[in-house]
């Protein structure tokens, strides 16, 4: 979801008879919930799929700072500003944990960053939507981070040790993000009629993009099978989406806001809420690069990377000089 549409490097799941002894031993470990660690043998496709998935997840954390960073200077109170600063700083940390996890698979962070900038890697579609006003910041924390939590809680059980540990650490911090967002929206939903209207508008606009975060319907999601067999993915897109809808609808009702989708209805038989499918053509269009903010987001990332180049180089040169001087003195 923070990693969407990850193509598994191989097309079909191998049967036991087709597996080499190494592959069979590897699958046994996965089936017995023994974590795979960086230096363990792993199929090349497992490694490549993970680099793509963890890398995309890391990029999403970093690009995700942009729509929220946008509002730091305009937060309505000093307290909200400090909270938002802390949250955006957390996202940088989450990016770092994930880049580190991906690096254990033999790719460097700088390489991943360059792949993102060259369009060879992606980030979550959700960050290509704008944050138009303060209500959006509340809604992003509550809905977007809320959706992320649903996915990331499942991923704590993923088979790759470093990824799983990064998820555990991230989940601990993420619930602060969702709660501060809901708290900000509560303030508006229970505030003046104008504020309530803003809260409603933010929920209406962000609902479908949020439920799209889980990726296409299982029936359309062609590359999940191998990822599920390898426990790179633990739950299917539709399972996670349903879980998110079920937990979020009562939260919307508590706020006294209208449901953003007329199709939301409790289904006694299923024990779940029914809801409408988002417009998937919009999703694919945003993924392709045609969302409202794709160009701005990429430009901002590339600019930050290029503007910071001399600082990174300078610090490295300084470190080299100091090391040489130290050797000379000894």
């Amino acid at each position: 979801m923070y990693a969407q549409m990850i193509k598994t490097a191989s097309n079909s799941v191998k049967s036991r008879d087709e597996m080499s002894p190494e592959e069979a031993a590897f699958q046994d470990k996965i089936d017995n919930d023994i974590k795979i660690e960086p230096r363990d043998w792993m199929p090349e496709d497992y490694r490549r799929t993970l680099i793509r998935q963890i890398g995309q997840h890391a990029h999403s954390e970093v690009v995700g700072q942009l729509p929220e960073g946008n509002w730091i200077t305009r937060a309505p109170t000093l307290e909200r500003k400090m909270i938002l600063l802390a949250k955006v700083q957390d996202e940088a940390g989450h990016g770092l944990y994930l880049y580190s996890a991906a690096e254990t698979l033999g790719v460097s962070r700088d390489e991943m960053v360059e792949m993102l900038h060259e369009g060879r890697m992606k980030y979550s579609s959700i960050f290509n939507y704008p944050t138009l006003n303060w209500a959006d910041i509340g809604a992003v924390g509550w809905l977007v981070d809320g959706a992320a939590i649903v996915n990331q809680v499942a991923l704590q059980r993923t088979s790759y040790g470093p990824y799983s540990r990064a998820m555990i650490r991230i989940c601990k911090e993420e619930s602060f993000h969702a709660r501060q967002g809901y708290h900000a929206i509560m303030k508006m939903a229970f505030g003046t009629p104008e504020q309530k209207k803003m809260a409603q508008d933010a929920v209406n606009r962000l609902w479908f993009p949020a439920i799209m975060m889980f990726g296409p319907n299982d029936s359309e999601s062609t590359h999940s099978e191998q990822s599920m067999a390898w426990k790179i993915k633990v739950k299917s897109n539709d399972e996670l989406r349903q879980q998110f809808v079920d937990q979020t609808v009562p939260q919307i009702e508590y706020l006294g806001l209208d449901l953003p989708d007329p199709g939301i209805k409790w289904n006694e038989e299923r024990g779940h809420y029914d809801f409408s499918d988002p417009d998937w053509s919009e999703f694919f269009n945003v993924i392709k690069g045609n969302g409202p903010c794709n160009v701005d987001r990429m430009n901002a990332r590339v600019k930050a990377w290029e503007d910071g180049q001399w600082v990174r180089d300078g610090l490295m040169e300084h470190a080299r000089k100091r090391a040489t001087r130290k050797v000379a003195a000894e």
Binding site: A86, Q89, D90, G93, L96, Y97, S100, E103, R109, R169, E173, R312, L315, M316, H318, A319, R322, A323
Partner: peptide, 23 residues
């Protein structure tokens, strides 16, 4: 607790403080 990139040990400590001891 994890890893990070830094040009030297001093910066690694500063970055570790920001990344791994925020709470």
């Amino acid at each position: 607790v994890g890893s990070l990139h830094a040009p030297d040990a001093d910066m690694a400590i500063k970055n570790a403080r920001d990344v791994y001891t925020r709470r």
